[in-house]
Write a protein that binds this DNA or RNA. Structure first.
Lengths: 97, 97
DNA sequence: CGGTATCCACGACGATACTG
DNA sequence: CAGTATCGTCGTGGATACCG
């Protein structure tokens, strides 16, 4: 459980994971979907997600530099967990805010 | 997701939830299952879990005082999430430590 | 554009001591 | 037995500034 939690429990981690879930996403796209946040935060998240090989980075040639992020198979394996997190949090008679 | 995560992501939260999952558990039982931890930690966890009405406290009469904790229906609703956390963390090709 | 470097603040974690 | 009180430490989150 700890193992799964460290992957998913950091601040904004779920949102950072959700973008590349349905296909490659650039850093800017990712960032734009996060509400008013410093650029450091997704960078940090992506770094640890990269180290754990949950997301893969790919730099595109040219200028300005572009990078796309995609989920590795291990990253895709987190999907059911994210779904369950959503279901549990959204459950009507469920967990209190 | 945030809602579900705050319920489950605190340190030792999963272990604190697991004990009363299969029936009432006393504070001492709970504590004994946690590896070498200060008594403050489960107390703190149980307090917030109580405030969120995920666990219910019941004091037994007599001396010394005994208290049993049981999960509320909302607490039971966390079960699929805990199962999924376990599955994801334990998956062979899964998330890296 | 896609980051890194530096610094700060706050809250969680945990030890120790104490209480009803 | 079942906690509370107090205090210290450390990590995380975040702002701001800067770089290739």
């Amino acid at each position: 459980m700890e193992v799964a939690l460290v992957a998913v429990a950091g601040r904004w981690a779920t949102l950072v994971l959700r973008e590349p879930m349905h296909g490659p996403a650039s850093y800017g796209e990712l960032w734009a979907r996060l509400p008013e946040i410093s650029s450091k935060v997704p960078a940090e998240r992506l770094q640890v997600l990269g180290e754990r090989e949950l997301v893969a980075r790919q730099r595109l040639p040219g200028f300005p530099v572009r990078t796309t992020y995609r989920l590795t198979p291990a990253g895709q394996a987190l999907r059911p967990l994210l779904v369950e997190l959503y279901r549990t949090g959204a459950r009507p008679a469920g967990v209190q805010r």
